[in-house]
Design a protein around this nucleic acid. Structure first.
Length: 316
DNA sequence: AACGGTTCCAACCGCGGGCTA
DNA sequence: TTAGCCCGCGGTTGGAACCGT
């Protein structure tokens, strides 16, 4: 059973916006704001448009400080590295590029940037698709030697049938420490992804506000954030992906935490979500393939060095 | 100039998730 | 707990603009 339509489709205008409609919408929002209700807005503003259409028009075109036109090399690099890091999460990528909208970036990627990358290396040099645990972490070519806290260990893995294996060890790439990454790479170390779920036995927050796994604390997450991480002594449910940070909430205030697995830190229950952004091709070219293209292209400030990362792959 | 193919981007669509009653 | 509502996201599409012949 499908959901009810958001508006009366027979009585709403579709297609390109006229300057008059733009003016009406802009004027209304500048005067009254959105009121937190896009569905009711078009009627109040005297527009025969769907609320979603109004929202899109405002966000992608009318709102102040929207940047149109050519993307700079820096923006290209950020998009490349973020795509390699988190896939087609356009809203997250857009958040790193002031003035750009997710739609803009999506279009730019699909029409230009991807082709640019694909044109860079010949087909014969491209690897077949693969899904690799290590791909969840970005590495930096400029990194210094990794500190001891780069290695984590798992107490066990569990499977959908309830069985478990282990212990196993996982080593993580040096990019887990943002200090070893380039400035541009740092800018993308922001958003946690949701394609790996797991269970962290313990962690702690050190004086530098870094989350150190292997200490005493707890973290709970189902969406890439963890709640009440300050509570100690409990195991932590978490979910995170290719980002290196976890978004946590302290008394309702979101903070981004850098994620470091320390020696003795305990991970268990790694599962890779089926049909997640890493399990399927985000575009005609697979994520891994695009990533490889990026790693061998002009975006190579953000190299993915598979040799420095763990090789453990856990599948259903 | 005319035509057909391609590119680009604004806009649409459906879905998932959060919120609330 | 559940159902309804809305928002925001990512994928897709339609058509205008552009380009080559």
């Amino acid at each position: 059973m499908g959901r009810a339509p958001c508006c009366d489709k027979a009585n709403v205008k579709k297609g390109p916006w006229s300057p008059e409609e733009d003016e009406k919408l802009k004027e209304y929002i500048e005067k009254y704001g959105t009121g937190g209700n896009w569905i009711a807005l078009p009627q109040k503003a005297g527009l025969k448009r769907c609320g979603k259409s109004c929202r899109l028009r405002w966000l992608n075109y009318l709102r102040p400080n929207i940047k149109h036109g050519e993307f700079s090399d820096d923006e290209d690099r950020i998009i490349c590295s973020l795509f390699a890091s988190i896939g087609s999460r356009w809203s997250i990528i857009a958040a790193q590029l002031p003035g750009r909208t997710d739609n803009d970036i999506k279009n730019y990627w699909n029409t230009k940037l991807k082709k640019k990358l694909i044109g860079i290396i010949p087909q014969s040099q491209r690897k077949p698709h693969q899904s690799n645990f290590s791909s969840m972490f970005q590495t930096c070519s400029s990194s210094s030697s990794p500190p001891s806290s780069f290695k984590g260990s798992t107490s066990s893995y569990y499977h959908p049938d309830g069985s478990s294996t282990g212990p196993e060890s996982i080593s993580f790439s040096s990019s887990l420490l943002s200090s070893s990454c380039s400035t541009s790479a740092n800018s993308l170390l922001h958003q946690t992804q949701d394609s790996f779920v797991g269970h962290m036995e313990t962690y702690q927050v050190n004086k530098d506000n870094l989350l150190l796994f292997g200490g005493e604390a707890s973290c709970s997450s189902s969406d890439g954030s963890c709640n009440n991480p300050i509570n100690h002594g409990k195991e932590a449910e978490f979910e995170f992906g290719r980002g290196t940070n976890m978004n946590c909430f302290y008394n309702g205030v979101e903070e981004t935490q850098k994620l470091i697995l320390s020696n003795g830190g305990s991970l268990r229950g790694w599962t890779e979500k089926q049909n997640g952004p890493w399990g399927e091709n985000p575009l005609d070219y697979g994520f891994e393939e695009i990533k490889q293209l990026i790693s061998t292209s002009s975006c190579n400030n953000f190299l993915f060095d598979e040799n420095k990362t763990g090789e453990r792959v856990v599948y259903y």
